[in-house]
Design a protein around this nucleic acid. Sequence first.
DNA 1: GCACTATATAACTGTATAGTTATATAGTCA
DNA 2: TGACTATATAACTATACAGTTATATAGTGC
Lengths: 115, 115
Amino acid sequence: MSALNEQALEYVAKYFKALAEPMRLKVLNALQDGEKNVSQLTQLSGGTQANISKHLTLLAQYNLVKRESRGTNVYYRIADPSVYELCELVCGQIGKRMTLEEDIKKLFTATSQTN
Amino acid sequence: MSALNEQALEYVAKYFKALAEPMRLKVLNALQDGEKNVSQLTQLSGGTQANISKHLTLLAQYNLVKRESRGTNVYYRIADPSVYELCELVCGQIGKRMTLEEDIKKLFTATSQTN
DNA sequence: GCACTATATAACTGTATAGTTATATAGTCA
DNA sequence: TGACTATATAACTATACAGTTATATAGTGC
């Protein structure tokens, strides 16, 4: 981080911004166990088709996901699994701190019911 | 990341959002070699005092920095060095990909002149 | 008390973007 | 070709927030 100039800082910031939306995290989460098409992601995430499509386009622009058309479907998959390292790091930090809510830790130890 | 419910996703997203501004990254960057007060950070980052103060308040809310008043000064320091791990991970990924600009890699290997 | 400095905050403006609805595009199959 | 499905996009609204200017707050020293 020490050798970052102005342009690089903006680029890094944009990368973080791509991860700074719950719906996009949800989509990335849904892609953890392999590629899925837009319909599947729409259903899994609970968003509208147009909205998910927009998020996927953005994620693809930042190379967080790879796009591949097959027939009338378009399949997306994680471009680089290290994105999950990022999330694990963040979850670890948040879990340690529990700043905004005292019981935030519960959120991370609870078994996944909502997605 | 697999055990995240809706609230946790929002929390993680907000955490990323805290890192999604160039000026805040600049401030965190300036704090790498130890605590600094608001005046110092204002000067180092090139922002206005009010603006830096706002960013610092936000960073403190997310426990990215710790605040400590001493006399009329307020000193801030990195709360958890693992935030730099995040940045390194992101820089590494961006460096590998060079997506938006072909010569983005130069940005990360160049010696720091701008900050 | 007053003057002075450091920091925080209030009020405001402009911009970016998430989400929606409606529509366009493109592939498949009859 | 035309009907059908899947995905993308255009146009719009509402909201969040970065940055600015002016002002408030709080600590120090006279």
